[in-house]
Design a protein around this nucleic acid. Sequence first.
DNA 1: CCACGCATGTAATAGGTTACATGATTTA
DNA 2: TAAATCATGTAACCTATTACATGCGTGG
Lengths: 189, 189
Amino acid sequence: MSLENILLGMLREPASGYELRREFEEGAQHFWSARLSQIYPTLQRLEEKGLLKSSEKPSEKGPPRRVYKRTKRGTQTLHKWLLGEPVVGTQRFAYIAQLVFMSELNDLAATRSFMVDLRERLAGLLQILQTIAEPDLKKLKRQPHTMGAAEFHDVIAIRMGLKSLASKVEWCDESLAMIDARTKHEREN
Amino acid sequence: MSLENILLGMLREPASGYELRREFEEGAQHFWSARLSQIYPTLQRLEEKGLLKSSEKPSEKGPPRRVYKRTKRGTQTLHKWLLGEPVVGTQRFAYIAQLVFMSELNDLAATRSFMVDLRERLAGLLQILQTIAEPDLKKLKRQPHTMGAAEFHDVIAIRMGLKSLASKVEWCDESLAMIDARTKHEREN
DNA sequence: CCACGCATGTAATAGGTTACATGATTTA
DNA sequence: TAAATCATGTAACCTATTACATGCGTGG
């Protein structure tokens, strides 16, 4: 299970389920996401398997937290995953399916407004990611040799999200141009 | 459920579950995929909901096929989905997670060979897609105005897969260059 | 005192994969 | 006659989302 490996990876330092969700929300959401209701049982399962060990810690604010720490076997399991093959999963793009089947409406104006909407959404995601990426990219430009291994790997990862989203926004623009050209040709005939 | 809508979309012409799988394998796998074991019960569910109607037809080869046809309500449901908002789902990139957590191995050579492997896989997917896309793209270049609505929408869709994959391969190459630069700097210090 | 953020969880349901089971027809 | 392809399905399991339930502590 991927989420198991991802939680193991995040637990470089001990943390609670609640804190791990924070990481998904803040830094990791461009490559993975998980809800608390999935995180909690997964952590429990990892403890049952002996890959994590938990203990209750009083919190500065609010109720006590259950803090999970990787065991030696947990680290071994993680490293085995890291040194294995790159996991290239199946991609699912519902909006592409919508676009393809939209041809049966025979309504280029509808296709166009769909693409405009999609472009806005993707550009919004791109902007969020750019904000997250900014400090890291700045450091990469100015003091690349002061970066630690973690920062370096983070930069490579986030650059992928950036490039991938940017190419999709570009694709939206090119598609809109194609739609407009076709619309123009239709009107002239 | 997205698969329900996607099957409705594919059923522009009546087809059996087995034929629909073919479509996933041949044309649609760059934006969605589904196994027979998921397709069959989903078609049954759609019939229970009154969005499809099935009938048994003798096959030219092999056992008789259960052929599904969209009902009026099925078409309405599909068009509602098509005219609704673009569905931008959560993306999950396990290989990016691997890359990020790999920093704790502190082994740039391992990161490098991971990226080389990943690049090959992505380039392979890109090549497959290019082969699928070729005839459509040729037509787009030579006789763009002879294309029907379906072909036109297909081209737009497949260009997205092409651009997205190409940008990922490019990202791999840039990342490898960054890794090599860092490795060189490490050796010099 | 009430709303909000902290913190942990369970239950029901939906979505998806792997493995299993069956049987017909065609081709080597 | 054995293997491949056609064709349909079920069962078990894994993965993920939505909704529900509980209770502490702080600030307005």
